[in-house]
Design a protein around this nucleic acid. Sequence first.
DNA 1: GACTATACGGAACGCACGCCCCGGTTGGTA
DNA 2: TACCAACCGGGGCGTGCGTTCCGTATAGTC
Lengths: 184, 184
Amino acid sequence: MAERPLRADARRNRELVLKAAKEVFAASGFGVPLDEIAARAGVGPGTVYRHFPTKEALFEAVVTAQVQDLVAGARERAGDEDPGAAFFGFLARLGEQAVSKRDLTDAIAVPSAVREELHEVLGELMRGAQRVGAVRADLETADVVVLLKGVLAGLHDSSLGEVSAERAARLFGVLSAGLRGSGG
Amino acid sequence: MAERPLRADARRNRELVLKAAKEVFAASGFGVPLDEIAARAGVGPGTVYRHFPTKEALFEAVVTAQVQDLVAGARERAGDEDPGAAFFGFLARLGEQAVSKRDLTDAIAVPSAVREELHEVLGELMRGAQRVGAVRADLETADVVVLLKGVLAGLHDSSLGEVSAERAARLFGVLSAGLRGSGG
DNA sequence: GACTATACGGAACGCACGCCCCGGTTGGTA
DNA sequence: TACCAACCGGGGCGTGCGTTCCGTATAGTC
């Protein structure tokens, strides 16, 4: 188990790959060819695989920090704010981030450790909000995940119109209003 | 431009392909390999391409009738019902259909003539509903399309849980409530 | 029954992409 | 400086899929 330190060039390339992956995933999502990331980093695909066993592993390495920040922030607020505000605030923050970071959208869908964490915190916040009547009682965690994933995906796919912060705000407004309930 | 009549076997195979495509697209969406449809029809891939120049053309041939029924129904009702009921009724009907017909979801996304028609009627109904205050005034047609597409896609992708009529009803309840507005 | 245009089917092509292999290079060390 | 292990790069493999090609079969006609 003794971890040998990486050679200098290996260490440098690892950073280059991570940086490139961060940019490219944010711009184009998980779907981009890995070769594009390698090219952006100025290395060959083989080098990428030397550092990350799989494309998913690289993706996870990139989004983990991002998601964990969001989750940590949400868990902090959960104590201070009222449950409704905590839940809807979290949704709003997700929406804002997702506009410029396409990979965040995929982070909800692509199986990984952070995905579970994200789903978990969503469930906690939602149940809290349901307890105080801020969210319809008949919804399950999976429902919110599906809605969120769907809205985010729709935001990006859209062959109609650009991804703008305004549209994202509008869509999340609709989503939030819907989750509050009072309609059918 | 004189249309020669098809040979008997060609005509029969055309029907077989359409029937198979209808079933397979409904079950698995546009993403299914075309070979699967050919196999189901008991013909070779080449035969499929003799009748339809492209996979998208076949898809369009399959969903056109389906979508046009929905659209025609919506346009009829638009005169009888009040605009709000017409719009939300249309959404509900879409949701019901989409549960068992995965291709309907893709029909919203894959570029085609029916897609435009579908978007158009959605826009008309929505503007009508907005005029009587049944839908938030700040929404554009594209917003509804994105939301609809997203919710439907989420409904199917879901690596969590099955696609049930109950969940669909719940999600469309949330969507409808959100579109009515009154929240942020 | 013979003849031909028409249609069939499935092997094969082209492409994209995830992933691996290996000849060549380079950083660290003595 | 000389050596070796670690590392690099990109060509290549395997797979999946849309699409095409072509030798063979068959429906329609005389």
